[in-house]
Amino acid sequence: MIEAIGLDADDTLWENESFFRLTEAEFCALLADHGAAEDIITRLFDVERANLRRYGYGIKGFMLSMVETAIELTDGAVDGRTIGRILDLGREMLAHPVDLLPGVEAALDALEGRRLILITKGDLMDQERKIAASGLAERFAAVEILAEKSPEAYGRVLWAQGIAPERFLMAGNSMKSDVIPVLELGGWGVFVPHEVTWAAEHADAPDHPRLREIGRLDELPGLVERIEGGAA
């Protein structure tokens, strides 16, 4: 039996990455005189990756990485107005409404009565804001906001919740963060791909007997029943 089901938040329950890509396009337009869009995006990605250990995941780190990239690309000549617009872009992202993805409410309705745990990562304040705005908090027995989704981090969550890894299933849009670490612990990993996923979250799917993939979250309840019945 599956004792508990973990669900990712960003791009599994609600839209997230698409807002980063829209902001990225505006950022490229701001710096159009200093390089082609693809070159600016590549440099921004490199800066983001380097800054993850400093700022972690989320909008605030993204905002600081945009500022740093603008300074680098202009050799320090970026003007205050441009920096101000970059900060405005970040604030607009932080104020964006939370839009649930198709199938989410139907999935949660069908999973009612099961032990659900929301496991996300990123900036604490922003994640708490989105969880509250989503209206979904009461659907979950527990909410965990992690700095990083590693096997060790998942292990600590399961230990605190008293859940054996082999009786735990995690579903999310990131093969790297939501699926592979749980498989390594001995749990079930369900990949729910989103049409827009940050490059840093990409990973090759392992050949693993407990890996599954679904197209939308509302396919999850049926999958869980098939797993428990030995048919999936």
Rank of each mutant, 00 (worst) to 15 (best):
86 I>D: 00
121 K>L: 07
171 A>H: 05
149 K>S: 04
50 A>C: 14
185 L>C: 13
206 P>D: 06
2 I>G: 00
176 K>I: 11
7 L>R: 02
165 P>F: 03
117 I>P: 14
91 R>S: 13
137 A>S: 09
157 V>Y: 15
64 L>Q: 05
210 R>V: 10
191 F>Y: 10
135 G>L: 08
79 D>E: 11
163 I>S: 14
130 K>V: 01
122 G>L: 04
99 D>H: 12
136 L>Y: 06
216 R>V: 14
166 E>Q: 15
75 D>V: 11
68 E>N: 05
20 F>A: 01
136 L>T: 01
72 E>Q: 09
80 G>Y: 12
231 A>N: 13
156 R>Y: 03
229 G>Q: 04
148 E>C: 02
209 P>H: 08
60 K>I: 11
188 W>L: 13
2 I>H: 00
179 V>C: 04
31 L>R: 08
150 S>D: 01
70 A>G: 08
109 D>P: 06
15 E>T: 08
31 L>W: 09
134 S>V: 09
1 M>T: 14
36 A>I: 07
143 V>K: 07
181 P>Q: 01
205 A>E: 03
139 R>I: 13
8 D>Y: 13
103 G>Q: 11
136 L>I: 01
54 R>G: 11
57 Y>F: 07
7 L>T: 04
65 S>Q: 06
230 G>V: 11
163 I>V: 10
59 I>F: 10
75 D>L: 07
232 A>R: 10
118 L>V: 14
140 F>H: 03
120 T>E: 01
148 E>Y: 08
107 A>V: 02
18 S>P: 12
189 G>R: 04
66 M>E: 00
12 T>V: 07
216 R>P: 05
93 M>F: 02
165 P>W: 04
153 A>F: 02
84 G>D: 13
101 L>G: 07
54 R>Q: 14
57 Y>C: 08
228 E>Y: 12
83 I>D: 05
68 E>R: 01
175 M>F: 04
222 G>A: 12
39 D>M: 11
4 A>D: 10
62 F>G: 01
141 A>R: 11
101 L>I: 12
141 A>G: 12
14 W>L: 08
186 G>W: 12
203 A>K: 13
17 E>L: 04
104 V>Q: 11
45 F>W: 12
190 V>M: 06
8 D>K: 12
124 L>C: 15
168 F>I: 00
142 A>M: 05
136 L>E: 03
227 I>K: 03
9 A>R: 02
41 I>Q: 03
80 G>E: 15
20 F>E: 08
27 F>C: 02
